[in-house]
Each structure stands twice: as C-alpha cells, then as structure tokens.
Computed example of a mutant assay.
Amino acid sequence: MVAQGFSVDLNKPLVFQVGNLGETYEEWVHQPIVTKKGPRFFHSDFWEFLTLTVWWAVPVIWLPVSVWCISMSVNRGLSLPEIVPLIALGIFIWTLIEYTLHRFLFHIKTKSYWGNTAHYLIHGCHHKHPMDHLRLVFPPAATAVLCFPFWNLVKLFTTPSVTPALFGGGMLGYVMYDVTHYYLHHAHPTRAVTKNLKKYHLSHHFRIHDKGFGVTSSLWDILTR
C-alpha cells in the first residue's frame, strides 16, 4: 500500500512504519493478512518480547488475582450471598467496558503519524493479522498497568468491603473475554451458541468492521442499534 510516496515493508518491523500511511492507514489496516505467524513489531528484542503472549497466560496470571480480590471481601466481612451478586455485577460491567473500549477506542479513526502508530499497537495489528496467535490476548504488563485506574475507579464508588469482590468479578469477566476471543479465532466450535458467536465475531473482521463490537456477547450491540 503506497501513501504519500511511502509503502509498508512487511519484512521489516512494522510499528514505526504504519504511521507514515497517513489517511490511507484506515484502509490498509482493514485489509487482513490471514497467517498464524505475525509480523515483527520492533527492532529491539526486549520490546518485541513484551508484545508476544500465549493465550493461557491470561487465566494463569489473572484468575488467581480475581480469587484473591474476592477473598479480600470475605476477610472484610461479606457473606457468600452478598459476594455472588457483586461478582455477577462485575462480570456484567466488564461486558460494557469491553464493548465501549472496542467501539470507541480500538476503532477510533486516525491519520496522524503517532495516532496511526498508537492505534496499530492497541488494536490495528489484530485487524491486519487477525490469526496472529501470539498477539491476540492482551499482554499481562499492559493489563497490570490498567488495573490501577480501574481499581481506583471502583474504590471511588464503593465501600472497602465491596471493592475487591466487584473488581474481582470484573477481572473474571476480562479473563472470560480474552479466552473466548482466542477461542473464536482458533477453535472449531461444535455447539450452536459458540458457532454463532464465532460467525458474529469473524464477520466483524472480514465483512463489516464497524459493527459487531461485542466479543463475549452481542448484548450491547443490540441495545445501541
């Protein structure tokens, strides 16, 4: 793809190239390259390593965090009948966060150098290389950074005993989201529910990229039509 005299070289690290596409970045990034092996992002081996994540790292790292948070609410005096609705509410709130981030941040339209570069790192790379199995789930380092503002936001509106259970439920929702996302790209569902969910999500990638933003559920897509 050539723009303003510039063409992306897929054999070289991509992150600092894509910004040069300018206004044509939007078109370029939504022309998928369907291979399991993804491109190189950075010259630096260290930064390259931080972009690569096996799918099972998500439940291995974040399920214990979710359980630990929920146990904090138990230690602060909440009973099981009080905690279960908070976990369910946390999962429900996550579905809204998932939808909102995907629709309004991950699909923001950019044309500046740094705007294109940031968008490619956050989500554009996933649309350009949708089957890249090592860049499909969110890197743990980035998730850890985002945990702090989300924790403080929950803390702002809830009591000290409620905060951990509600946050733990949201973290559980996140784990379900990322594992489901990987499953929809790389598994072969046999049940009607998961077949339809896979069809719905792949339609977002390969047919209409400005619709179908829900991954674990189409609820918010339906409510916001």
Rank of each mutant, 00 (worst) to 15 (best):
V67P: 04
F42A: 12
A118N: 03
L134H: 10
F16D: 04
F148K: 13
A141M: 11
V162S: 10
Q17Y: 08
Y182W: 11
A57S: 06
T194K: 07
A192V: 15
F157N: 04
S161E: 13
Y182D: 05
D9F: 01
H43I: 13
R225S: 13
F138A: 08
E23D: 10
C125R: 05
D45M: 12
F213D: 05
Y200C: 08
V84P: 00
F157T: 09
E26Y: 13
D178E: 10
P59Q: 07
V8A: 07
K155H: 11
T158K: 00
Y113Q: 04
H129C: 04
L121M: 11
K12F: 01
G214P: 08
T163Q: 14
T194F: 14
F104L: 03
L197E: 02
R40S: 11
W151F: 11
F92Y: 09
F49M: 07
Y200G: 08
L223E: 09
A3M: 08
V2A: 14
V60L: 14
A192Y: 14
L101R: 01
H43K: 15
Q31F: 03
M171N: 00
H126C: 08
H204D: 05
P140G: 12
L21Q: 06
P59N: 05
W47Y: 10
L153N: 03
S218Q: 15
W55R: 14
L105K: 05
N75C: 07
W55K: 15
K199T: 15
V154F: 04
S112Q: 07
G115V: 02
S7Y: 09
A187Q: 06
S161D: 09
G19R: 04
I93A: 07
H205A: 04
Y177T: 00
F92N: 09
F167N: 01
T159H: 12
L136V: 14
T190I: 13
L89G: 02
W62M: 04
L89D: 00
A142T: 14
A141H: 12
Y99W: 08
H107M: 15
T194I: 05
L14I: 04
T117A: 10
L156Q: 10
A144D: 01
K199P: 07
